[in-house]
């Protein structure tokens, strides 16, 4: 608390109490969306665009069917390469493709018809203390949907199994701020003026 200096003590103490206790008018709820709607995207120089591109996380979306096909093609390509490299009689390093397949393909839960979805938020300097994903798939509640910080990749990550469907979601940062997913191009405004990211999970998981 401010301690009045000698000169300030010349004034009645009630003056300072009145100033400190002066109540402010509350900002209306529509102020934030009004401001955000008035912002125009900044024109970036080529250099700034390149820098931004390098800093942004790369999100890879895939369906199990496409993932398996891709891994199979990769495996064949790798084996062909090795055959060319070592000659026709060279032994094939089978584990390489098996490991790739295990890592790249998330097996859908056929019993429940769910599909794996990975949420990623870049935070290179780890400026945030906690991040959760809230959306229409969890009634906008963060319980159990906290993201873990991947120190190697310097990103927040959450893997979920979601039923097929269309979802809106945002990242809840430090339990008090919400931001749409910077890696998803489509955002939709809700009735409260907030902007939510839109994701479609189906046979072809993709952003829409």
């Amino acid at each position: 608390m401010h301690t009045p200096d000698k000169r300030e003590r010349e004034y009645p103490a009630g003056l300072y109490e009145a100033i400190r206790g002066y109540e402010d008018a509350k900002a209306p709820a529509e102020l934030l969306p009004g401001i955000l709607n008035g912002l125009k995207p900044r024109r970036l120089s080529l250099w700034q665009r390149l820098l931004r591109l390098m800093r942004e996380p790369v999100t890879v979306s895939f369906t199990p069917a496409r993932g398996i096909a891709t891994v199979a093609v990769l495996a064949v390509a790798l084996m062909s390469l090795q055959l060319v490299w070592y000659g026709a009689e060279a032994p094939v390093a089978e584990r390489t493709s098996v490991l790739l397949a295990e890592r790249a393909v998330a097996v859908p839960d056929a019993a429940h018809g769910t599909v794996p979805v990975r949420f990623v938020l870049a935070d290179e300097l780890r400026r945030n203390h906690s991040v959760a994903v809230i959306g229409s798939f969890n009634q906008w509640q963060d319980g159990g949907y906290s993201m873990r910080y991947d120190t190697a990749a310097k990103v927040w990550v959450l893997d979920l199994m979601l039923p097929r469907g269309e979802y809106e979601y945002v990242f809840l940062v430090d339990g008090r701020m919400t931001i749409p997913d910077p890696g998803i191009s489509l955002v939709r405004e809700d009735n409260f003026g907030s902007r939510n990211s839109v994701l479609y999970v189906g046979d072809e998981t993709r952003e829409i």
């Binding site: 900002a27 401001i35 955000l36 995207p41 665009r49 931004r52 701020m177 931001i179 910077p182």
Partner: peptide, 15 residues
């Protein structure tokens, strides 16, 4: 750097 949404954090903090 072009992240318009980040400005909302400043608005939330100081509006």
């Amino acid at each position: 750097d072009g992240n318009v949404d980040a400005f909302s954090l400043l608005v939330l903090r100081y509006q």
